Computed example of a mutant assay.
Amino acid sequence: MPSMVVIATTAVPDHLRGALSRWTSEVVPGIFIGSVSARVRDQLWQAVTEIVGNGAALLIHPTDTEQGYAIRTAGSRRRIPADFDGLTLIRMTAAPRVKEMQSPS
């Protein structure tokens, strides 16, 4: 039975966005929503994880948990889902440091 999925992408290759748009609707840039079977969802997510490159992606889909949904991520993200006694919370990682340019003396 189909269920709703949301896939959010950041800085992914255009051909990945094209592949996702075959099964979902891109409602705003990088946000894809659709109703697909669990099999199609898992195959789409497999493609996302293989192609994401230096970008990032997030999948939200319904499941039998207290919250009613599951979160999967791929690529590098500052927000990391973490299980806390059966609840998915979001843990923030430190922002990458930018090296300061030193002027010649």
Results as ranks from 00 to 15, higher is better:
51 I>R: 01
86 G>T: 10
90 I>R: 00
104 P>L: 13
82 A>D: 11
22 R>D: 14
50 E>H: 10
3 S>P: 03
58 L>A: 01
86 G>L: 08
25 S>G: 12
67 Q>N: 08
64 D>G: 11
8 A>L: 06
89 L>M: 14
65 T>L: 09
7 I>S: 00
103 S>D: 11
43 Q>R: 05
98 V>P: 03
12 V>K: 01
50 E>P: 01
56 A>N: 04
16 L>K: 02
26 E>M: 02
20 L>N: 01
49 T>V: 08
22 R>V: 07
73 T>D: 14
25 S>A: 15
99 K>V: 11
40 V>H: 09
18 G>E: 11
100 E>N: 04
61 H>M: 05
88 T>L: 08
26 E>S: 03
60 I>D: 10
74 A>F: 08
39 R>E: 15
64 D>F: 07
15 H>M: 13
102 Q>E: 13
43 Q>Y: 09
71 I>D: 14
23 W>Y: 09
53 G>N: 02
97 R>L: 07
24 T>V: 02
91 R>N: 11
63 T>E: 14
75 G>H: 03
80 I>G: 12
33 I>S: 02
59 L>S: 06
13 P>Y: 03
75 G>L: 02
4 M>T: 10
56 A>S: 12
56 A>C: 05
45 W>S: 00
70 A>P: 06
82 A>V: 10
8 A>Y: 04
46 Q>L: 03
58 L>M: 08
75 G>W: 03
23 W>F: 11
64 D>V: 06
39 R>N: 14
66 E>Q: 15
52 V>S: 01
63 T>R: 02
91 R>E: 13
40 V>L: 13
85 D>A: 15
101 M>C: 13
99 K>C: 13
62 P>W: 09
76 S>V: 09
31 I>E: 14
92 M>K: 04
12 V>G: 00
4 M>W: 08
74 A>G: 05
39 R>S: 13
103 S>H: 11
96 P>F: 14
93 T>A: 09
7 I>D: 09
105 S>I: 14
73 T>G: 10
21 S>G: 03
88 T>G: 14
74 A>D: 04
29 P>D: 15
65 T>G: 04
19 A>H: 12
4 M>N: 04
50 E>F: 05
57 A>L: 06
103 S>M: 07
22 R>G: 12
61 H>G: 07
34 G>F: 00
1 M>N: 14
10 T>V: 12
81 P>H: 05
21 S>I: 04
